[in-house]
Structures are given as C-alpha cells and as structure tokens.
Design a protein around this nucleic acid. Structure first.
Length: 433
RNA sequence: GGGCUCGUAGUGAAGAGGCCUAUCACGCCUCCCUGUCACGGAGGAGAUCGCCGGUUCGAAUCCGGUCGGGCCCGCCA
C-alpha cells in the first residue's frame, strides 16, 4: 500500500511504503538525506546504512524509487515527519544528468525564458513550476464550479472550421481532404448558436491565432473561456463576469495563499463591484495626467491599459476595471451598437492587461445580415450560413465574453509573460516541445 | 512586420583590443563529513566565447553579414 508524501505524518511509528522520484541527495558522511517527490510533494528520507546509500551511486535526480521505512515524527524534517531505517528499491535508474536543476527555482528572467521552455519537459518537475500549473488547474475548476452553479452547460465546439469565425484575427489555414479549412480562432459562432439550445453555455478550449505578434501577451495557441448567455441586458453579462472573476480570484487567494506567497504573487486587491470607465473617459484622464496626445487612438494603447489599472487600484481599490463604451470601430459584425454610437461592449482589464471583451450580440436577423454585408461577409457562404440560420429561427437578446485563461493565470500569479503560464507555449518561433 | 537590444562550459553570470592558456556560482565526478533542507570542506573534468567573413602585429572584445533570443510598438485576446 503506497503512502503519499504528505500522509507520512499520519502513520507515525508504522512502516510505510513511499514511491516517487529522487529529487535531492544530501550526503553528510555517515548520514544521508534524500528527498522523494510524488504527486503531493516531497518527503524526506534518512539513510544511515551505507549499503542503502550505495544503491544511489551514479544515479541522478529523476531516478524512480520505492522506499520502505518507519514514519518518524521529527520537527527538524520538512513537514514534521520523515522516514527512518529506509530500504531503497530503484524502480527506474536514471544515469543522465538533467540539463536544468530542478530542485531550486528556475530563472524566469525574460532573456532566459527560451532555456526554460527548451527544457520544459524536465523543468516542470521543479516544484515552483508545477505549482503554477496546479494553480491554473484550480482556476479552471473554480470557473467551472461557478458556471455550473449559475446553470450553465459546458459545450465543445469544432476547432477545424470552414471559415474565419470573427474576422479581425489572422487564421491558420490547413488542407482538409482537399478543401481549405482553418483552425478556429474562437468558438464565437457556435456558442451563439448554442444559446438557441441551452440559453447559457460555456466552453474552455483552444483558439488559434496566426498574428505575427511577438510580445509578452501573445501566443499562437491560446486557451479561452467562452461564455454566452441568453435573455439578458448588457449589464447582466458585465455583472456575471464581475462576479465570476471576483469569486474565482478571491477563492484562489484564499485556498492557495501559501503557494502564491512562494511564487511572490502580489496581494490581491478587489471589490465585488469593479469600477467602470468609458473609453472616452480613460483617454481624457490619461491625456490630462500624462500630457500625451492619444486623440488618434480609438482603442486603448498597452500603456493606457497599464495606466488605468494603476489608477483604479489607487482610486477605487480594485485591480480589475471595466473599460466601457468601446469605439464603434472596434465593433465586429456580430456586436450590437450602443445608443451613443459606440459599441455595446466593454473590456475587462486586470493588472495592466485586457483579459476579456464583453459585448452584447446583435440578435435581430435583419440587423445581423446587414452588419455582415457591411463587413464584407457573405451570409450565405458555407462558413456562415448555418450561423445565420440560428437567428432566422429565433435567438433571444444575448451576450457573452471570451476570456484568456493563460493571461488570467499569468496575472493571478503575477508573472510577466503569458508563456510562463502555459505548459508548452506556441509562438511565432516555437513549435516544440 | 518595424525599432532597440543580447548570444561566453549542462545552467546562471563576469570579462568590453594584449593581464584570457577565458573568471565565478550552481550542477557533474573523486574523497572527507551523523541533522541536512540552496548542507559544508578538499580536489577534478567540462567552453573550438552562436556561425561566416573583415580590420589589426594581436579579437570573446571592433566592423559587416547571417542565424537565434529578448523587450517595446503594430496586429490581436
């Protein structure tokens, strides 16, 4: 019967059997300490029998071990317990030296990220790296639990599609049995169609973006949370997103307080109600404060995104802020126009970066078709005809948002590059590992 | 795609015309060490200084090209 590392302390005085990876050796002459890593963490094993230590000669970190020993309460040991009188069995010997040291924090300096990703396969065995992805896993779980709690149905939509879903973003083209297909840049059209079935749907899945972007916030394959909700006013969706983000982040900071501290994450500053500023207000405030002329800008510049986040943190005590009344020029064909001529749409910014766009959709068939034509899209083309059908057969007022999981994880932890929050990131130069 | 920057042992860094037969730390190998936890100590191996060409008596160091990173901008989430 295998005992996991964190359960050793529950078996004081008994013989326990532990299995895992050799994570660290410390030889002190007559006494040797080794750390064994398993899925719950690290357990310390004390070996004083020279023959047992000899079994590890020539073996490297990563060697897979079975250890049998007596669980002993020991305040000096990490976790307060350790194994004594250990008998070692080498299950998988490893003689090759690891290319990176996995028992101490790996460098996340920008210029060293390439090395980090080159050696990702082994680097992820580092406890701090693994913690990032445990946090990501829990963020996804919190999101799912929140949405299930609000009566949403989780869906999966195709990632090989006939045409561009949104327009705007560049798409990857591929040969599909002699036809040209694209990798989905968003589940946008499908999730709207599904409002006609379930009213409230969400999907967590990949989206593919072919932009030649080389920044700390872009990758070619991104994990998106997509939410769509029928029978709403625009404000309802802003409130849902606000509640979701507040719920998920406060829960993360509560349940992962220790991990976040180890990763040097900043303190979380959030209020249940996020401040809202219109795009116009932000432009004016930014211009007044910095003296920079951004009258030519319709969208927020990256510099403004950082600035308004700092402003909201200082003045509103919130690291999350809505930029509302986005310019009409940012509108896509499926967005609804607002009363003041702007888009009925908002961006959610968190810690200096846009993590979500929240528009209401144009649900009226005639208006949608007109907007599609104005955008140069043929409503009868194979990629779009099924979508338009859903509207002809009745879709209620609806809205939703796309939400970058990678950016959320990055910013929740306080990392500086979205790729650090992705197991095996894909960017314009990286296709492996 | 544009601008600016950087490529030195497995990893992270220092060296900015001759002091370089290239330095340090971690890792690795050998030995010593019974409470370590980034253990400590002694010794050792490991680098054609990204690549090609040029300037120079002499290039890791200067120049040109090339390949590969990074950051910012644009595009976008």
């Amino acid at each position: 019967m295998r005992t996991l590392s964190d359960e050793v302390k529950k078996h004081i005085g008994k013989t326990v059997h532990v299995e895992g990876w050799l994570h660290k050796k410390r030889l002190l002459g007559g006494l040797t300490f080794i750390n064994v890593r398993d899925r719950h963490g690290i357990v310390q094993v004390v070996i004083d029998d020279k023959d047992e230590v000899e079994k590890l000669r020539g073996l490297q970190i990563g060697t897979v071990l079975a250890v049998e020993g007596t669980a002993v309460e020991e305040p000096r040991a990490p976790g307060g317990a350790e194994l004594h009188d250990a008998k070692l069995e080498v299950l998988v010997p490893v003689t090759e030296e690891p290319p990176v040291e996995i028992d101490k924090p790996l460098s996340h300096k920008p210029e060293n990220l390439d090395t980090l990703f080159d050696h990702r396969v082994l680097g992820l065995r580092n406890l701090q790296e693994a913690t990032i992805f445990k946090i990501r896993s829990d963020l996804l779980r919190y999101i799912r639990e929140f949405l299930y709690g609000h009566d949403f149905v989780e869906i999966n939509t195709p990632k090989i599609v006939a045409g561009a879903a949104e327009g705007g973003a560049e798409v990857f083209k591929l040969d599909y049995f002699g036809k040209e297909a694209t990798l989905a840049q968003s589940p946008q059209l499908y999730k709207q169609i599904m409002v006609g079935v379930f009213e409230r749907v969400f999907e967590i899945g990949p989206a593919f973006r072919a932009e030649l972007s080389a920044t700390t916030r872009h990758v070619s394959e991104v994990t998106m949370l997509d939410v769509e909700m029928g029978f709403i006013e625009h404000d309802d969706i802003l409130k849902l997103l606000q509640e979701l983000v507040y719920d998920v982040l406060t829960r993360l900071y509560k349940e992962h307080a220790e991990d976040l501290k180890k990763l040097r994450a900043p303190e979380l500053m959030l209020k249940p109600e996020f401040p809202r500023y219109s795009m116009k207000q932000i432009h004016e405030m930014y211009q007044k404060e910095t003296g920079k002329d951004i009258s030519q800008e319709t969208d927020l510049t990256p510099e403004e995104e950082r600035w308004i986040c700092e402003y909201a943190k200082k003045h509103d005590g919130s690291e999350a802020v809505f930029a509302t009344n986005l310019p009409k020029s940012k509108m896509k064909f499926y967005h609804m126009e607002g009363e003041d001529g702007s888009a009925r749409s908002a961006d959610l910014l968190f810690r200096g970066i846009e993590i979500s766009t929240v528009p209401q959709r144009e649900h009226r068939h005639e208006n949608l078709v007109a907007q599609m034509k104005a955008a140069g899209i043929d409503p009868d083309s194979p990629g779009f005809a099924p979508y338009v059908t859903a509207f002809r057969h009745g879709l209620p007022p609806h809205a939703g948002f796309g939400f970058g999981i990678d950016r959320l994880t990055e910013k929740a932890i306080g990392l500086n590059n979205v790729k650090e929050a992705i197991l095996f990131p894909r960017d314009i130069n990286r296709l492996a590992p």
